[in-house]
């Protein structure tokens, strides 16, 4: 960004997050970014898993042991919620790219839908994992 010349009059800024009333579409937009950053961490966890698997049974046991701890499970559950939210919100973006879904009521409904899908899909996945003996 170019520097303002010295002595320039302070110019009005566009409205920022601090003066907006929180709205569901705004929350979905911001959390989509947060989820994306969380999934970067999730990918590094998968890369670490691949390294552990290629390094032998001891390394694999140590790695999955850490992932299976309480802290590890909380992180993994968070990553799964982030994945399903980012996925659902990404589908919203596909619709927007096609010029659809911009009506305020539609945008509100799909934002709520994305949050609901994230929770339901993550809980469903972990329920299957629990009954499957994966945990």
């Amino acid at each position: 960004m170019a520097e303002a010349p010295p002595g320039a009059r302070a110019r009005p800024l566009s409205p920022h997050t601090t003066i907006w009333r929180w709205h569901i579409t705004m929350a979905a937009s911001i959390l989509n970014r947060v989820a994306g950053v969380a999934l970067y961490l999730g990918l590094l966890i998968v890369a670490g898993w691949a390294l552990a698997l290629a390094s032998g049974p001891d390394a694999y046991g140590a790695y999955t042991g850490r992932l299976g701890s309480l802290v590890g499970r909380v992180i993994l559950f968070g990553v799964s919620v982030a994945l399903f939210f980012h996925m659902a919100n990404g589908v919203r973006h596909f619709a927007w790219d096609l010029g659809r879904g911009f009506a305020p009521k539609t945008a509100d409904a799909t934002a709520w839908g994305s949050f609901a899908f994230a929770i339901v899909a993550a809980v469903a996945l972990w329920t299957v994992a629990l009954t499957n003996g994966a945990l």
């Binding site: 799964s80 973006h93 596909f94 996945l125 994992a129 499957n132 003996g133 994966a134 945990l135």
Partner: peptide, 26 residues
């Protein structure tokens, strides 16, 4: 967007596979 479209299918498969892979151990 193209990578997002690919990942839509790949991550659903990946999340589903992870459940059985984790259950099977090393």
């Amino acid at each position: 967007r193209v990578s997002a479209f690919a990942l839509l299918g790949l991550t659903i498969w990946g999340a589903w596979s992870a459940v059985s892979v984790v259950a099977g151990g090393y």
